[in-house]
């Protein structure tokens, strides 16, 4: 006798049982996927430090070659040179790492675009040791400078740079202290980059930065120009007044500088301005 209801139940059980391999397959695939992801993650974690180590080694080798060059050019005594060389070849070299940003892209910039901001086109800033030297200037620059010379006489351009003779000593100390130093070789490139940005957005903070950088490297004429530009954009910035006046001071316009600061002091009672006036008056301003 056909028992259809019981058959229905048996068929239901059979249908569920039939799907078990499918479920198992799905679970297996999921497990394999998870295991694969875990293995992949683990492998990528292993390869990452190795890659970093390779990068570090490359950097070290580059640094070593750079340092070798620097050492060759330096005026170290033979004794100190041999000690540095032995130090470089030692394991300490691996731990010493110095990062230097590459600003090569700035070289591609068209400098003629920056003429407006320089107001002294084609003027070339040369980094030299602290040795007094008259810079060679293009005729056009001289024309400009003669205009300014009514206020400020021609000056020696000095770039703040540590003497080359001191460099090997500093290089030598670094491995012992395991410190990392970041050195900017060319401030001018930074300045050019900021000038380009300032040209785009006329941000007084940028022109102030340029003014300060020029002031720091002894380019007082440019520092004066950018301090003035900053002041025109925003006269409430104290530093623009200070850089402006200090630049004037260094351009042998001490009286004008003090007068400018006093007029600013009348409006703001700035302590920094007071100090600067005092330093100018007693000749201690640097």
């Amino acid at each position: 006798m056909l028992n259809v209801l019981e058959l229905e139940q048996r068929q239901k059980r059979y249908s569920q049982r039939k799907k078990v391999p499918l479920y198992l397959l799905v679970v297996l695939v999921l497990l394999l996927f998870i295991v694969g992801v875990i293995i992949f993650t683990a492998m990528s974690d292993e390869t990452k430090p190795a890659a970093q180590l390779d990068g570090a080694k490359e950097l070290q080798s580059t640094q070593t070659s750079t340092e070798d060059t620097m050492l060759e050019n330096s005026t170290l005594s033979s004794a100190s040179r041999s000690s540095v060389s032995s130090d470089i070849s030692s394991d300490h070299v691996a731990k010493r790492m110095r990062l230097e940003p590459s600003m090569d892209f700035i070289q591609d910039l068209d400098e003629t675009d920056l003429e407006y901001y320089f107001e002294e086109p084609e003027e070339k800033v040369v980094s030299v040791p602290r040795v007094t030297q008259k810079p060679t200037q293009a005729p056009q620059s001289q024309q400009r400078r003669s205009d300014i010379s009514s206020i400020v006489p021609s000056r020696e351009r000095v770039v703040a740079q540590k003497p080359a003779q001191q460099q090997p000593q500093r290089e030598y100390r670094a491995p012992a202290q395991h410190t990392m130093s970041i050195e900017r070789e060319n401030d001018m490139r930074d300045i050019l980059d900021v000038i380009k940005r300032f040209k785009r957005n006329k941000n007084p903070a940028l022109s102030l930065f340029v003014a300060k950088r020029y002031y720091a490297i002894g380019e007082y004429q440019q520092a004066y120009n950018y301090a003035l530009a900053t002041n025109e954009l925003d006269s409430s910035i104290e530093d623009s007044w200070l850089i402006f006046a200090k630049s004037l001071y260094h351009l042998d316009q001490k009286d004008v500088a003090i007068r400018t600061l006093k007029s600013y002091l009348d409006q703001t009672s700035s302590i920094k301005a007071k100090i600067a006036i005092e330093q100018m008056q007693n000749g201690s301003l640097r």
Binding site: L7, Q11, Y14, R17
Partner: peptide, 16 residues
């Protein structure tokens, strides 16, 4: 398929 499988269970072609 359900009815066919039920018939197969009844005839013994499917062990359920």
């Amino acid at each position: 398929s359900k009815v066919i499988e039920m018939a197969a269970i009844e005839t013994g072609f499917i062990d359920a």
